[in-house]
Amino acid sequence: MEIFEIVTYFVLLLLVSTAVRVVTTSNVIHAAISLVFTLALTSVLFLLLSTEFVALVLVLVYIGAVIVLFLFGIMITRAPLGKNAELDNDKNKKLGAAIAGSIFFLFSYILVNGFDGEVIITSGSSTELLGEILLSRFVFPFELVSFVLLAALIGGITLARKDEALIDEDQV
């Protein structure tokens, strides 16, 4: 049990340090790569909490798809690759740090006091039961979410494509 706790604390420490790098680095590609590490470490944390299905979904969807989308977005919008001093709005830095710090201290004060002495007892694998619940009791939201994905797909295509038919009509 001792080694388990050491690994957990190590993962939590790395999680915070990579997340700090996501918001402070002045290189856009480094920010995206740091987000990959943050998500991978979150996945490890989920595995330590014995929720292996969610951990794998996180790896597949986030690291596999969302990060690739982000890299596309960075390259298509021609964000200057390499170090870029213009990436941060320096006027907002102090205000942002103050707001974020106060939110952090408020949250951690409330949470540390509210959950004093509570412990997590991890149980074994739960994927089989999760699948049964997801496709029985929660089947309606499950289908609804697939409809949301379809709507997002159509909306994304409609927004991003050049509407040449519309331009032609204007000229006529």
Binding site: L87, D88, K93, I99, A100, G101
Partner: peptide
């Protein structure tokens, strides 16, 4: 809170 900081500071 790091996410909030990023939203406020990033350009």
């Amino acid at each position: 809170s790091l996410g909030i900081y990023g939203i406020l500071v990033r350009r």
